[in-house]
């Protein structure tokens, strides 16, 4: 199983060059059964990464471009009167896919955003009294453009909380970009084929959830969370949901790295991705104050009894 996972990650990395860490984080996010938020400028490979993830895991994929006039129904689907059958027929929206790329999520109106987030949380869609369950597994990869733009609706903190992780891709380094450019022609055509079966993936998910977490690690997580609450340095302290997310993500990370137990390194590795967007009051100004999650990490000693 470990081999398959590593092979999958390698395959994606070959596609999204120079982003080993982000790819692994994204993969562990899916492994922890959580939704992913990618925040970056256009053209950094957000869509490529999503595509690659979908392909490698053999998931159905759809992409919804969020705009200010997008209505919930546009995304969720609509009941349309079928003149042939003389009955209303459910016309499923683009959300009925295993992996949904919600592009520029902050452009949509709050109403649409909350419809999406509700679907993410409940894994089902309710329409005209009918409940349509979403496919399983169901992942949403949301993207946001961090540059301040007018006419956007930044996701409120409560909703940012629904994304297990938030990652930034950032510019590739010289080497990686060169490699990308030189191999551009051959790569584009070569579509990724599925490396893992869906059943295998859900097995891995279950295994990851079983990873042993000792008291020492749980105490460490608690100390981190408590520090965020009591130090007064963080505008938005971490919620119990955040601490749960932190544990889940750490487990997935440990699983990917072939361990059946948690060490503080796992927590430290996933913490920026899991906690940063929860600690911030709004998503803007990423580059201003430096990373809050790193401040948090540096303040808490993993060994202290």
């Amino acid at each position: 199983m470990q081999k398959k996972i590593n092979a999958s990650i390698d395959a994606i990395c070959r596609h999204v060059i120079g982003k080993q860490e982000q790819v692994t984080l994204a993969f562990s996010c899916l492994l922890a059964n959580g939704h992913l938020l990618i925040e970056d400028l256009p053209g950094m490979g957000k869509t490529t990464l999503s595509h690659a993830l979908a392909n490698v895991l053999g998931l159905q994929f759809s992409r919804i471009q969020f705009t200010s006039d997008l209505l919930p129904a546009d995304m969720l689907g609509v009941n349309i009167f079928d003149s042939n059958e003389q009955a209303f027929k459910f016309h499923p929206g683009p959300i009925f896919n295993q992996l949904v790329l919600a592009d520029e999520i902050n452009r949509a109106s709050p109403k649409t955003q909350s419809a999406l987030l509700e679907a993410m949380e409940e894994k089902q869609v309710s329409l005209d009294g009918q409940t349509h369950s979403l496919p399983s597994p169901f992942f949403v990869i949301g993207t946001q453009n961090p540059m301040h733009q007018s006419g956007t609706y930044p996701l409120p903190e409560s909703q940012l909380d629904r994304f297990l992780m938030r990652i930034q891709l950032g510019y590739p380094d010289w080497q990686a970009e060169k490699l990308m450019l030189s191999s551009a022609q051959s790569k584009t055509e070569k579509a990724l084929s599925a490396v893992m079966q869906l059943s295998e993936f859900s097995q891995a998910q279950q295994a990851a959830a079983q990873i042993h977490s000792s008291d020492a690690v749980i105490d460490y997580i608690l100390r981190l969370v408590t520090y965020s609450r009591e130090s007064g340095k963080f505008p938005n302290p971490l919620s119990p949901r955040a601490s749960k997310a932190l544990l889940q993500a750490s487990r997935a990370w440990a699983y990917i790295h072939g361990r059946d137990y948690l060490v503080p390194e796992d927590v430290q590795a996933v913490l920026p991705a899991v906690a940063e967007h929860r600690l911030r009051s709004s998503l803007t100004d990423l580059h201003g104050q430096g990373s809050l999650s790193h401040q948090l990490l540096e303040a808490v000693d993993p060994l202290a009894a």
Partner: peptide, 9 residues
């Protein structure tokens, strides 16, 4: 029509 276009359009 593209997937994602508002229905009232």
């Amino acid at each position: 029509y593209q997937l994602g276009d508002p229905l009232y359009h």
